[in-house]
Simulated assay, not measured.
Amino acid sequence: MTEYQLKPGKLGKKVMDGYKKVEEKFTDTFLEKDENSPTGYSLKTGKTAEKVTGAYQKIEDGVVGTYKKIENAFVDKFLEEKED
């Protein structure tokens, strides 16, 4: 299937900027730089950090999954692949 990217517009830009701020705050609070990690970060130690990270991952997966469903429905409803 062809991949599409939705133009975010004003509202989409605000949502993306808000998400970026939450992500940065999370990174500052629960992650530390780690050159040996493939992502460049590792989890700060502690049970609270592990619980919060797990909860954050579940929320992120839900948001991304929901967005993907909406995006697919939009593509199916309003877009069609161009034939050359």
Rank of each mutant, 00 (worst) to 15 (best):
Y67I: 06
V52H: 02
V75G: 00
V63C: 08
T29D: 11
G65T: 06
F30I: 04
G62L: 05
G40M: 02
E3G: 03
V63S: 01
V64Q: 14
Y19A: 12
V22G: 06
Y56C: 03
E35G: 06
T53C: 08
V22D: 08
V52Q: 01
V64I: 14
K33P: 04
T48Y: 13
K44V: 02
D28M: 09
M16D: 11
V75W: 00
K7E: 14
D61K: 13
L43W: 02
I59E: 11
P38C: 06
F26T: 02
G62A: 09
G40E: 05
N72C: 07
T48E: 15
T48K: 11
F74H: 10
A73F: 05
S42R: 12
K20T: 11
G12Y: 03
L43V: 05
V63D: 02
V52I: 14
T66Y: 06
V64W: 01
V15K: 07
K10N: 09
K68V: 08
E24G: 03
K25G: 07
M16Y: 05
V64A: 14
L31G: 01
D61H: 10
I59Q: 09
P8G: 06
P8C: 07
D17Y: 03
G40P: 03
G54F: 01
D34T: 05
K33V: 14
E80P: 00
A73S: 14
D28F: 08
K25R: 13
G12V: 01
F78C: 10
G54M: 03
E32R: 12
K47W: 12
G65H: 05
M16K: 15
A49D: 01
V64S: 13
I59G: 10
D34C: 04
E50Q: 14
V63A: 08
L11S: 10
K20E: 12
K13A: 13
T2F: 09
L6S: 09
K33R: 15
N72A: 15
M16P: 00
G40A: 09
K68G: 02
G62T: 03
L31E: 01
Y4L: 09
G46Y: 05
K14E: 13
F78H: 13
K33A: 13
E3A: 13
T48H: 10
K7V: 13
T39M: 07
E80N: 05
G65A: 08
G18Y: 07
K10C: 09
E60F: 07
M1I: 10
M16Q: 15
F74A: 11
D17V: 10
G12H: 06
D28I: 04
K58H: 07
M16C: 05
L11V: 11
K69C: 02
T66N: 05
D61S: 12
G62V: 02
L11T: 05
E80L: 06
G18N: 15
G9H: 07
L43C: 03
P8A: 09
D76C: 03
G9L: 06
K14F: 13
A73R: 09
G65F: 02
D61F: 02
G9K: 06
V75Q: 00
E60K: 12
E24P: 01
E24Y: 02
A73D: 15
L79Y: 04
D28Y: 07
N72P: 00
K82W: 05
